[in-house]
Design a protein around this nucleic acid. Sequence first.
DNA 1: ATAATTGCAAAAGCTTTGCATGGCC
DNA 2: GGCCATGCAAAGCTTTTGCAATTAT
Lengths: 139, 139
Amino acid sequence: MVNKTALKILTDKGLRVTPQRIAVLDILLNFDNHPSIEFITEYLRINFPRISDSTVYNILNTFVKNGIINRVKTENGIIRFDPVTDKHHHLYSIDSEQIEDFFDAELDKLLSEYFLKKQFPNFKIEEIRVQIKGIFNPA
Amino acid sequence: MVNKTALKILTDKGLRVTPQRIAVLDILLNFDNHPSIEFITEYLRINFPRISDSTVYNILNTFVKNGIINRVKTENGIIRFDPVTDKHHHLYSIDSEQIEDFFDAELDKLLSEYFLKKQFPNFKIEEIRVQIKGIFNPA
DNA sequence: ATAATTGCAAAAGCTTTGCATGGCC
DNA sequence: GGCCATGCAAAGCTTTTGCAATTAT
């Protein structure tokens, strides 16, 4: 049950449960396309025609602050949102807006071992993310 | 001679040489701090008090279009610029605005070998970039 | 000479803020 | 009931656009 999940996430974080928040979280959880604010707002207005832009911004900011979602920066500067807050990498499409999550424990191991050997003199590594750009479903 | 370098870059690209363009390029070449538009504009106004914001935007957009510089996206959404257009990775500071270039042929080899083995079914890789976040000069 | 760039002003986006109303706990 | 979230309007930023004057080739 999706609503249950959204509801649980909100209550677990001690956040007030409003229909708008549930709707936003449902969208984030059900579309694994890292939606933009524009996408989220358009979709929301199907069921909440009077929802305001500032409410959507407020909700998303609240979610980010509470670690429910992350911002994903894209090449064109449009911010998108990722409900998967576990550490992972991303596949970016060069010729479309598609973004896919990419989990790879083997890669993570490879990288952490590499950077353990190859220490930086004046830099303490906290996190390594790989951005892989390419073409989905190539001809 | 720095101006000569900036001048050469412009003429090589077939771009008109203006004092403003040389000044912007000089800043980009001399500060290896991946400056923001704000930084660039402030610095420019020391010598060009009347340069307008739109000119700076126009110049930077022209440079990006011509492959002289790249945009670098940061965590807080501020766009910054990188005069090094060779493929490389970045070290990002978690607690400051510092960004450093990071060239590592060994890492590139490691990654390309790894992804040669581990092919994606529906994705053709064009470019791999590693974002390394951490702390410069830790205590 | 002529075509492009500059500077200024205005417009266009995107995001935040202020505040009264309404809804959640 | 008290406090927080919502919706609306307005303000704040950043970036782009239009255009006359200036400058580079």
